[in-house]
Design a protein around this nucleic acid. Sequence first.
RNA 1: ACGGGUCGAUGAGACGGUCGCGUUGUUUCCGCAAGGAGACACCGAGGAACGUCCGGGCUCCAUAGAGCAGGGCGGUGGGUAACACCCACCCGGAGCAAUCCGCGAGAAAGUGCAACAGAAAGCAGACCGCCACAGGCUUCGGCUUGGGGUAAGGGUGAAACGGUGGUGUAAGAGACCACCAGCAGCCCGAGUGAUCGGGCUGGCUGGGUAAACCUCGCCCGGAGCAAGGUCAGACAGGGAGCGUUACGGGCUGCUCGCCCAGUUUCCGGGGAGACCGCUAGAGGUGUGCGGCAACGUACAUCGUAGAUAGAUGACCGUCGAUGAGGCCGCAGUUGAAAAACACAGUUGUCUCGGGACAGAACCCGGCGUACGGUCGGCCCGUUUGC
Length: 111
Amino acid sequence: MLKRANRVVRADDFRTTVRKGRRVGTPHALLYIARTDSGDPTRIGFIVAKTVGNAVTRNLVTRRLRSIGHDVVLAQPTGTDLIIRALPGSPGVTWTTLQSEILAGLERSAG
RNA sequence: ACGGGUCGAUGAGACGGUCGCGUUGUUUCCGCAAGGAGACACCGAGGAACGUCCGGGCUCCAUAGAGCAGGGCGGUGGGUAACACCCACCCGGAGCAAUCCGCGAGAAAGUGCAACAGAAAGCAGACCGCCACAGGCUUCGGCUUGGGGUAAGGGUGAAACGGUGGUGUAAGAGACCACCAGCAGCCCGAGUGAUCGGGCUGGCUGGGUAAACCUCGCCCGGAGCAAGGUCAGACAGGGAGCGUUACGGGCUGCUCGCCCAGUUUCCGGGGAGACCGCUAGAGGUGUGCGGCAACGUACAUCGUAGAUAGAUGACCGUCGAUGAGGCCGCAGUUGAAAAACACAGUUGUCUCGGGACAGAACCCGGCGUACGGUCGGCCCGUUUGC
């Protein structure tokens, strides 16, 4: 899970990251990555639209993404804003698939 | 035992591990402070949290009273803060019954509407019929034409202007009579009442639809927690006072006066933020009492989510509510037997799958809808035994 300091909570920050950040596609999620000051903590936000499913399904997807986000913060504690947008197929895949896909996507953007 | 009806209870499946989140409290550290970080403890989604369809609390605005418009409700009595909800009863319909169903006011105030069939569907009407009279024809059985009478019989329909039987008649008809159904008025009895039971009289009968307009009775002000309030700071402006004997500038050389600067004070201000509202409330549980019940009441007792890009979890392992299938037996059935196994049950064992509907956002009371299963109470019918 993520602490409040590691989350994107302002609508302005969401807009900036989605508009100006680098976009990386994975099979079940879309990543928006923006570099920030190296002193600032890494922050992560989530976009799970109604096309993904009903409230229960969306909550499950959000929790899984938060859990993945926790790994990301541990690996890269500062200097990044990341927005993850879940795609409609995301509730159907297993936890390990989702995790490896997103981490691979980050790997590609870093390299 | 089988079948049926009804009322409930329960429902993130259990345990362990790794990694985590939110509220509150205690405490440690950092910081001038605001605040931040850590540790520990407690607590942390539902019966529908859902849909947002009704009703209320609460908040702000409006408001003398009454009415119009608009909307809602509609058997009776009760419950409630209130309701479109709940309880009991009444009426009508379905069912052998338990029980269920009715969006239950008014159709002789008016307007409108009604497919198909049928002669005719709303001040009724007359297709096939039936009937006497007048004319014509006649094989003397009847046939036919005319203007009339009639609605018993036929056929259509959800529905054809009371039903059955008789008197009557040319044929018929509430034309008349008896009984029955229904209507209106009056009376008696039961009930708080809807209504029910009974009697007398009358005219003999004047269909449906109000979830069509409409009529009657009763109820309803509007917007919503993004309500509403507090705080600090940034960014326009406006009003009022002071502006002096001494301290700024201008009209003006001086005084008064006026204007500006200054200062005090009040009002104001898009949007973003923090905090309050924010969870103790028509509260839950138990017992007694009142009531057929819904419910009320007294006492005792309990402390029970509060997020805000939105906490209450993610993953792994073991188990298994329960389902499907395989194998070996058992009783059972068939058969003289050996033997066989379509259906149903069951012990053991193995394999596979592995939990429905669904996530609080100010709070309650309802309604409606979704749902894998499990458990229970009561009642009715049929059959068998005592």
